[in-house]
Amino acid sequence: MNLKTIIIKGLWGIFAFLCIGVSLYPIKYFIGAKNVGLLATKSPELLLDSLWNTGFYGHIVFGGIALLVGWAQFSKRFRTKRIKLHRILGKVYSVSSVISALCGIGIAFSATGGGVAQMGFISLGIIWFATTIVAYRYIKKGAVIKHQTFMFYSYAACFAAVTLRVWLPILLVFMDDFMVAYRIVAWLCWVPNLLFAWYMIHSMARKRTIHGI
């Protein structure tokens, strides 16, 4: 095994570990104290709002499911050898993503950090929802490459759950103001993800062109 293969497998392992680890993160909201994590930043009035609570728990539960089942879909070996399971998990991912995105858009109007953070999370929710729907419609038409392209963007948006938890502690090292850091991370958690997805998509397209696929 050469160095390149070792690095790729190592990065894939880190990617899988982060996806699985963060997908289980919502469990903490169902055990122990109720004012943990993000809930600690919310007002008592908002925490008593049944509609907001429905949106919050819908967002984290279905978002966790999407994150958990989605990462393996990027394995070519998995897609070719376990095609039936790939399709089942694809449907689970799509339904979970749509529900979580819609719930996310709803609760984003009350996001910590005010208007800047709210617009960041609303934009993320809209992009996640739209790319998932478009990807699903393409696979129904048999347009595999276009389906893969939009699923790449969809999971890049989904992966914001991971990158938010990576970037926020880093930002807090360099600034004392949580609100400022949260306004920044509301955009930083997903914009670079989409740019990376765009780069990977175009790199794969170039390879297909070179090899005449």
Rank of each mutant, 00 (worst) to 15 (best):
L3Q: 12
L3S: 13
T5G: 08
I8V: 13
K9S: 07
G10R: 06
L11Q: 02
L11T: 04
G13S: 04
G13C: 02
G13H: 08
G13W: 12
G13P: 03
G13N: 08
I14K: 03
F15D: 03
A16K: 10
A16E: 07
F17C: 05
L18R: 10
L18W: 03
C19P: 04
C19F: 15
I20T: 13
I20F: 15
I20P: 04
G21D: 01
V22T: 11
S23P: 09
S23V: 10
S23M: 05
S23G: 06
P26R: 01
P26T: 02
I27R: 06
K28R: 15
K28F: 08
F30E: 04
I31D: 06
I31W: 13
A33S: 14
K34S: 05
K34M: 02
N35T: 11
V36Y: 09
V36R: 07
G37V: 01
G37A: 10
G37L: 06
L38V: 14
L39I: 10
L39F: 09
A40H: 15
A40Q: 13
A40E: 12
A40P: 11
T41C: 02
T41Y: 12
K42Y: 10
K42P: 03
E45Q: 15
E45V: 15
E45I: 15
L46F: 08
L46S: 07
D49H: 11
D49N: 15
S50E: 12
L51W: 14
L51D: 10
N53Q: 10
T54S: 04
T54H: 09
H59D: 01
H59P: 06
I60L: 02
I60M: 04
I60T: 00
V61M: 00
V61L: 01
G63F: 03
G64K: 01
I65A: 00
A66T: 11
L67M: 14
L67H: 08
L67N: 08
L67A: 06
V69P: 07
V69W: 07
G70S: 09
G70E: 09
